[in-house]
Nucleic acid binder design. Sequence first.
DNA 1: CTGAAAGCGCTAACAA
DNA 2: TTGTTAGCGCTTTCAG
Lengths: 341, 341
Amino acid sequence: MSEPAKRPLTLRDVSEASGVSQMTVSRVLRNRGDVSENTRLRVLAAAKALGYVPNKIAGALASNRVNLIAVIIPSLSNMVFPEVLNGINDLLDDTGLQPVVGVTDYLAEKEERVLYEMLSWRPSGIIVAGLEHSDASRAMLKGAGIPVVEIMDTDGKPIDAMVGISHRRAGQEMAQAILRSGYRRVGFMGTKMAHDHRARKRFEGFTQALAREGVEIEDRAFYSGGSALVKGREMTREMLERSPDLDFFYYSNDMIGAGGLLYLLEQGIDVPGQVGLAGFNGLDLLQGLPRQLATMDACRREIGQRAAQIITARLADPPQEIESQVTLAPVISYGQTLKRR
Amino acid sequence: MSEPAKRPLTLRDVSEASGVSQMTVSRVLRNRGDVSENTRLRVLAAAKALGYVPNKIAGALASNRVNLIAVIIPSLSNMVFPEVLNGINDLLDDTGLQPVVGVTDYLAEKEERVLYEMLSWRPSGIIVAGLEHSDASRAMLKGAGIPVVEIMDTDGKPIDAMVGISHRRAGQEMAQAILRSGYRRVGFMGTKMAHDHRARKRFEGFTQALAREGVEIEDRAFYSGGSALVKGREMTREMLERSPDLDFFYYSNDMIGAGGLLYLLEQGIDVPGQVGLAGFNGLDLLQGLPRQLATMDACRREIGQRAAQIITARLADPPQEIESQVTLAPVISYGQTLKRR
DNA sequence: CTGAAAGCGCTAACAA
DNA sequence: TTGTTAGCGCTTTCAG
């Protein structure tokens, strides 16, 4: 339980302490191959007494097996991604596979670096957010020779497997719901989306579906940084001053939508009578607001789970057959800010 | 840029492709030792052309150096921890060190497993949330022979380094502020805190400081799971019905506090006149609420940064001297739900 | 059921 | 500036 611990302990130390060959110790510690109960106990006792912790680096090199799954996401501040991670964690928890997370900050260049770094640990699989990658990243992904699951988005062609929703479609459906409800003068607010392809696709789908009915977005605003709730308030106030005739605000995420909702209610504006609202993501948070914001579930947790499932299926021996291009169907939640027709 | 890639490429492949010894290739790829510009370029070209990705497993085994920092936290759903991670990421970004995250779900037993798993990768340092660990975990931490930084909490004796705030103190100070403002009939709401030692310590500090002035908590409620905002609403409604005489609600986190705030405002209750409110954490979110909730900053990002700083300082060659028991001083933000006296 | 030998892909240390 | 040699700590493979 307590030693000087200068040089980390090796299998050899356990071998000597237990009077059993290093190989047998290895077998015991991995539950591999037949070992007599007697020696098994001797070895376990010795390992525990010494406080031995195996060296996976050496193990991985020798066995050419690494129990790591690389997970590459754009951000940790976004609420959305920790939930995806939770889904992945969930499913991986009993499989002996360990997720390792890398963050790209929505930068293709950083994605490249993170990917390179991760691949150099020779993980058994990769889960990466989005379908858009630099040529170099794409080449690495293709060349890695391991299962690759691109998640969140299905508007495009995956390198290997993919799990997500169609953001273009999500935008379209929301536009249709809005028009069906009779709103016509629509404003849009969202993040600056130079690098957020999913937000961009939702926006495109949204405007296209409006256009099909001869409707055009009348005002728009973009933000970056700061508290989303506050930004939602501010942008909504400004837009309302600028374009007082708008009868609908579509927000690219629930958090700014919530800010807008709070602001409008404070102003005594009739929601959804005078102005309708909708966000995106289906955050838990919305349940607790004074009025439930219309939104669309992004299936975050399920995406994580399905992605992990695909990886484990592929890695199973023999590999399990499994659907590897999964488009989840998010459902509009009308809440109380979008009239239902 | 494109090969069959069945067997992953090795240094040898690059060596052969460039006509330079494997050792020199290794040197080039690590920017180590003097290499003529000429061969440097040749090697780089070859590596790139082949799409070579180094094998860190082998590198780590040979050099006995691993650029990983283990980070062990209780949860990813809590908002709080991703922010700490951001702080760590921030500071580690240019150091060549890579955080690897493990999640314990507030379970000592899982902490033990995760820790064992992580240590078996022989990381260069560990950052772990909290000061409470099982004996086995403590033994591993001590025996690992690497810098260990315990974060978030400083009410206790660290194994090695520590960065955080005193949650006991935080509870006390909030109690004092509440009493100073003239509130006397206090209710408490929080998570079930069997395993959340920091919440427990805040609670203890809080009740003690009240007791010193002869005040006792009059009602309390605990929750687990579900949307915190909704729970905050519900618990507040129930408590108010049960104990209509209360003049203050202290919430163990901002999210349930926000729920309570929204509920009370909807009920037309005068905040902070009739009832005062305070939460804990200093979430960004609060800025956007109809009224700013009193809270106390938990210094999440800074904790992450300082912890990472300690690790990098210790790992520097030669090791830099650096303060390794850091107690940050969170400041009360009175907001608009706690009268200022 | 147990052990001995070889080697995973890389880097430290030395030699040229 | 470049190359050679010997492992790092483990597991695979094969032999007992």
